[in-house]
Amino acid sequence: MAGIATRYVTENELNNEMSIEELSRHAPALGILLMDKTKRDQTRRRFKKGYNFSEKQVFALISKQTAGQKKEGAVSNTPDTTQKVEPEEGTVNVKKDVEVIAKALSGTASNASAGLSRLTRLQRELKAFRASKKIISATFIPDITYSANKIQKENRLLRENEGIYYPDHFSLESVKERLDSYVVSNIPDKQALADVMIMLCIRPGEIKDLHIFNENVTGYGKNRDQQDIPRVFRSLEKNEEWAKQLLIWIQEAIFSRQLRDPGKPGVLWFNTFLKKDEFLPEIGKPLLPSSLRKLGAVFAVVSHGSKNLSEAMTIASEALRHSADNHVSPAKNYTIVNYRPRRVSYDRAKAFEFFDEN
């Protein structure tokens, strides 16, 4: 993110000869880009060493957050977008700033899919600050959306051909045995985290907010900034109360810092854990955090003993907490897994391809 911020400086021709007043006009845009203390500190150091900005100039561009703003996760420099912003001579047009930010975010991403993900996050941040639709519209880049959709389609076709393989350690039988044996009075480890993520088809970024109650689930990732509509609880673990206890066990460990947060952007420790030698499948690629969610969907289908394709799709979609109003069957993007029971050879694995009517 610091690289994106420095690109903003270059594109806006900022330099150390500008006055504090001139530089401070760009603080709202940089405030949107730099959403946590680490990023802000990194960028300040970059501005000092790379652009020779003085201490005062750096803090004019990136001011300190108050304790209250840090606690609430607010961005101290973000403009009040609830009011109509009129361009005036010598001021920065907020919509133009957002356009520059959007281009910087997407332009520095590794590919269009990653760029679209960044733009979606920016839109979410702007909505959180009640930005107008006109300002938010500046984040939409049709070419990025088109290219990202094309990449997603190509990746789906690739997954259809290859599928996900997993070792016996992450078979349904092994995961279920560990889930049944956990003692929630103990401190959970990375293995427990991985098993619970499989059990609930959890995205790393939503593990702290997920909530199970009365056969429903809320707090899932796709529901951000929208009405928190409960989804049906569906999991390989049929005992809702036990699943709830295991989830709370993991969440409390994360909040108390006994367990690191896998949803923190840029973390690699969980990927490294999944790439341990004993976790590598005999064929195929190592598992990723996103693979656990897909395994969970297939394991839920197997656990509930679906009788036909339609029922399998329903179970998978419920386990993944997809909207029942989505008739495009998005579950097929997640359930391409080469399923095999524990100790069954890889060549006897059955590919779960729910979209295949045959």
Rank of each mutant, 00 (worst) to 15 (best):
E11T: 13
L14N: 01
L14E: 02
E22L: 01
A29Y: 00
L30R: 05
L30D: 06
L33Y: 03
D36H: 14
R40V: 07
K48S: 14
K49C: 00
A60L: 08
T66C: 02
A67N: 05
G68C: 00
Q69D: 14
E72A: 15
E72Q: 14
G73Y: 13
G73R: 13
V75R: 14
P79R: 04
P87T: 08
G90Q: 05
N93I: 00
E99Q: 11
A104D: 04
S106D: 04
G107Y: 05
T108P: 00
A109R: 04
L116S: 09
Q123M: 13
P142E: 07
T145A: 13
A148L: 07
K150M: 11
I151N: 05
E160I: 09
N161F: 02
N161C: 00
Y165W: 06
D168F: 01
H169Y: 11
H169F: 10
H169T: 07
E173P: 03
R178Q: 10
L179T: 02
D180H: 00
V183M: 03
V184D: 07
I187F: 06
A194L: 05
M197E: 04
M199E: 09
L200H: 03
R203K: 08
L210V: 15
F213H: 15
G219D: 07
Y220V: 15
N223S: 15
I229A: 11
I229K: 15
K238W: 01
N239F: 01
A243H: 04
K244C: 09
K244T: 14
I248D: 13
I250S: 05
Q251G: 08
Q251F: 08
S256F: 05
T272M: 03
T272L: 05
F273R: 05
I283H: 01
K285H: 11
P286E: 06
V301D: 11
H304G: 08
S306V: 12
N308Q: 05
N308Y: 03
S310D: 12
S310Y: 04
A312P: 06
A312T: 05
A316F: 10
R321T: 08
N326F: 05
N333F: 13
N338S: 04
N338E: 07
R343W: 03
S345V: 03
A349L: 08
A351D: 00
F355H: 10
E357T: 06
